[in-house]
Nucleic acid binder design. Structure first.
Length: 462
DNA sequence: TCGCACATGGGTTCCTTCAG
DNA sequence: CTGAAGGAACCCATGTGCGA
């Protein structure tokens, strides 16, 4: 029996999702990424994890997000698992499966009318969750996802919807060569897996071969049943290595062999005998090209950034300093500025030592924490700056601290997944010409802590 | 309600120890 | 030599209380 949930994601009610979450947490700690995504979606819900009313009110009963996105997929997976669990009373859990909104069930030893009664019970069960499904029972052949399963012959073969012509990235497209090179091979493997024998593969292959030819490839798909033989002899799992990846963006316009140059630098600066050779060597450092961003999304994000800046400007102009005594403002009446890289210059006599830090929130808040660590000895070790201040205090050396903003930035993520603010801070530290910089080298390898504070991830902490 | 000081929490890396 | 485990350190972000 095959069934399809109509408008699955838009039909998931707050109650259903809350129940699914409560159920899932009984069995397993939910992965951080999944949890954060679901919690983000939960913002539009009226219930929290314990079923209590959620503070933020939603406008509608259902979500306003489409299922295509990451959020939708994760929510559907979770709710789907909950539904499958509940359907366990009706049908053996080994005989029913759900992928997003497509479901498949095997009914053993059921006559035609028994199977139809079961179909009706499953439809009714979905109704109790507020979901509608379309079903087909008493069938021996089903088209499920991208495969056709035939119970009569016990075979399976690739399936595509009528008029669904496969299209692939063109061989001359501006992708890393490894990507385009592997496309024919990966398609061949996929079609082979979906075909239960070579004859079925040969029947299915022409449409994919044509699509490959249209995309400029000369390769011909070959049946590959190695997956079966490899299953029989499980290979001993090799010891996992700690690999450091370098992922430069790939572009055909760049004629330099970036990879070759990179490894040449690696060999030059970390030769055998070097203290760091153990960490940075050809076996531990790998290179893989990443794709350049889609031109349309680059232009869109650029436009959005400019437009949102224009919207924010009037607000910024309203409040830039809240100091009671304006003359004492650490940033010259600009202390409420957010997302900045700042520098503190500590001058004692003729020596000036600097400390570079960042503040994603208002600088005033960060400043307040710094001043606390200067006042109380128990917070001496809070920052390298406070350590230095307490050093000077013990020596009885008079000092003056001057604060300045080095760079305005933001915590939005770059394409590489790195936060602008953190990268700018590291860059400022690297480019600083002050030989008496207080910052420690270990800061360069510290990870961004702003990712988790994005609205989506912030909910994780509630 | 605002501004401020302070306490606490949290994610991450570093360092040490120990077993295999 | 390697990886796991546990604690310490670091650098903030967030919550709370209090006086003006």
């Amino acid at each position: 029996m095959i069934f399809d949930i109509v408008d699955f994601y838009p039909s998931i009610t707050k109650e259903l999702l809350s129940k699914s979450l409560i159920w899932a947490r009984q069995y397993t700690p939910i992965q951080d990424t999944v949890y954060a995504t679901i919690m983000h979606a939960r913002k539009s819900l009226l219930y929290d994890l314990e079923g209590r009313p959620w503070v933020k009110k939603a406008t509608t009963d259902a979500f306003d997000v489409t299922m295509g996105g990451f959020d939708g997929a994760e929510v559907c997976e979770l709710v789907g698992l909950y539904i499958l669990h509940k359907l366990g009373d009706l049908i053996d859990s080994h005989d029913i499966g759900l992928y997003r909104d497509d479901g498949l069930a095997v009914l053993r030893d059921h006559s035609g009318s028994q199977a139809d009664r079961m179909r009706k019970r499953i439809v009714a069960a979905f109704h109790t969750f507020g979901l509608k499904i379309t079903t087909q029972a008493n069938i021996k052949t089903v088209n499920y996802l991208d495969a056709t399963l035939d119970l009569r012959t016990g075979t399976h073969r690739p399936f595509r919807k009528p008029n669904d012509q496969p299209t692939y990235v063109h061989c001359l497209s501006n992708h890393p060569p490894e990507v385009t090179k592997r496309i024919p091979e990966s398609i061949g493997n996929r079609i082979s897996t979906l075909s239960s024998n070579e004859e079925i593969f040969d029947n299915a292959a022409p449409i994919y071969n044509d699509a490959l030819r249209d995309s400029g490839y000369t390769d011909h798909l070959v049946y590959n049943n190695s997956t079966e033989s490899s299953k029989k002899q499980p290979r001993k799992k090799p010891r996992t290595r700690n690999i450091i990846w370098f992922n430069p963006p790939y572009s055909r316009n760049v004629k330099s062999n970036v990879g070759k140059l990179f490894f040449r630098l690696l060999a030059k600066h970390f030769p055998k005998g070097n203290k760091l050779h153990k960490i940075f060597n050809k076996n531990n450092v790998k290179l893989s090209y990443s794709c350049m961003g889609n031109m349309r999304s680059i232009i869109n994000s650029h436009n959005n950034r400019l437009l949102s800046q224009n919207k924010l400007r009037p607000q910024l102009a309203q409040r830039i300093c809240n100091c009671r005594v304006k003359l004492n403002c650490p940033l010259n009446r600009n202390c409420l500025v957010s997302s900045v890289i700042y520098r503190a210059d500590v001058t004692t006599g003729d020596e000036t030592k600097s400390y570079i830090g960042l503040s994603s929130g208002p600088f005033k808040q960060r400043y307040s924490n710094h001043s606390k660590s200067f006042r109380h000895e128990r917070y001496e070790k809070e920052t390298e700056l406070s350590k230095h201040i307490w050093d000077l205090k013990r020596k009885g050396a008079p000092f003056v601290i001057e604060w300045s903003v080095l760079k305005h930035s933001n915590t939005s993520m770059r394409r590489s997944g790195q936060c602008n603010l953190c990268i700018d801070e590291k860059l400022c530290i690297l480019l600083s010409k002050n030989p008496h910089l207080l910052n420690k080298r270990s800061e360069f390898i510290s990870k961004c802590r702003h990712n988790r504070l994005k609205p989506m991830n912030r909910a994780r902490k509630k």
